[in-house]
Amino acid sequence: MSDPTPVFDDLRDESDELDRLVAELSPGQWALPTPAPNWTVAHQIAHLAWTDHSALLAVTDADAFRGLVEKALAAAETFVDEGAETGARLPSAELLARWRQGRAELDRALRASRPGARFPWYGPPMSAASMATGRIMETWAHGQDVADTLGVVRAPTDRLKHVVRIGVRARDFAFGAHGLPAPAEEFRVEILGPSGDTWTYGPEDAPQRVTGPALDFCLLVTQRAHRADLAVRAEGPDADRWLDIAQAFAGPPGGGRSPKGDAE
């Protein structure tokens, strides 16, 4: 079993990078609308704080987490937005402090977890490393919404490998979420990382392929940009269809983003 510590470190670093973006914002900037409909900067951070708390309960109190799942099932269409709305109503300093405290508690709980343990989640049970990987993906994606709102261009890091991996592994889920049968064969996926390494998945001789830079692939699978604006390419009809529907997140298909030309 590999040491999960580097994954926990990457989650800490990804969160710290976003923290630096919002730490000095004025109350007016916390209220700025982000690309996510009806969500301000405060909603984005409140959602992360809420999900970190959910993850903490999953790791430390399975019974309490089951209560959250029951609430989610009872209000599937509104549960996520309600969690974000509750936190977004807090004064910005209180929300920031709550997010910081929650992610610190989650970090300690993940690092203290028993090797090989699996924890309940809204989907299949997860290991501590998988839980941290999912939190990296969400932190990066919602951080992208904040960065776009503030006009900040973030330098991509090799932490994107976690997001890429989730996106690749979620291929069949994306097809199923759209009511489509999953392709029978694996795709070859070749992603160029920020440091120049190529991250590869699937058989080298697979006839259907997806290639592109890590940042663009992550923007695609988190639905933070339209594929028309990204340098991600597909060979083969199923691979091409995947790029239209890819998602790295659980739940129903998202609305995605419109091509930049549509906003002009």
Rank of each mutant, 00 (worst) to 15 (best):
V69G: 06
L230F: 08
D262Y: 10
R100E: 03
V168D: 03
A109C: 06
P181I: 14
V69W: 13
V164W: 03
T200S: 15
G134Y: 06
W242V: 02
A170R: 12
A250D: 15
D145Y: 04
G236T: 07
S113C: 08
R118I: 11
F79G: 09
L32M: 07
L73N: 15
W242S: 04
A214M: 08
P125Y: 03
T51K: 02
R12I: 10
T200H: 11
T60Y: 03
A263V: 12
F65C: 04
V41Y: 00
D158F: 13
V163Y: 04
L180I: 15
G179E: 13
A184F: 12
L160C: 10
R111H: 07
K71G: 12
P203D: 10
A49H: 06
V163R: 02
G179H: 11
D197T: 14
P4E: 09
V189C: 05
A36G: 01
R241T: 10
H226G: 04
D10H: 10
A184Q: 15
A225I: 00
W39E: 01
A129K: 09
P259E: 07
S130Y: 10
H226L: 09
Q144T: 15
R111Q: 03
F217A: 05
D240T: 15
W30A: 00
L95G: 00
L243P: 05
Q101F: 08
A46W: 00
S92Y: 05
R103D: 00
D148I: 07
R111F: 04
A147F: 05
E17L: 14
P213M: 04
A177V: 11
A84R: 03
L106F: 02
A248P: 01
L56W: 02
W99G: 00
